[in-house]
Amino acid sequence: MQRLWEPAPPEGFAQFVAARSDALLRSAWLLTGDAGRAEDLLQTVLTDLWRRWASITDGGQPEAYARKALFTTYVSWWRRRWRAEIPSDPPERSAGGDTAGESADRDAVRRALARLSRQQRAVVVLRYVEDLSVQRTAEVLGCSENTVKVQSLRALRSLRTDPNLELFAAGRP
């Protein structure tokens, strides 16, 4: 078996991973709907973070950078995953596997989210899980506030009419 070069992490990186991974992984699951892909997305972002760690920590905002990278990587991720130029390394699955199918409710949310476009899903997670304002959401995604509002409206319309979700409050007059 080939021995891989395994460099030592930069100072403070391991602590950051320990402190922030759970929250980032939750958002990653909501974006991808799959535990393995969520872990893969998170590790992709952490790998990028590692490479830029010195400059990011100089700016004092590793969490903000990681969050932005998580969402922007996700938005542009599918095409890279499915292109012929896929890197030879397969995504590493998380130890736990995907437990989404164990709950009908969870699966309903996962399927409802899967029906949204990637931008809409990112907007919904940033607005409703990360509790970001329209302005901050726009900053993270690198788009206009108007785009966030439009995507948010479309996403809500889709969730509201999703037959699998009990979002009936939305239908109240």
């Binding site: 992490p9 909501l30 535990a35 590692w50 590493e92 998380s94 736990g96 995907d98 989404a100 709950s103």
Partner: peptide, 30 residues
Amino acid sequence: DIKRLLNGAVPVLAAPEDRVGAVARRVGRQ
């Protein structure tokens, strides 16, 4: 409703034993 649904939908996600090591191997492979 949406906030509750989304937050309640995330399963318990098992972390790999050594996530930092996994990232290190990715950096190494790159």
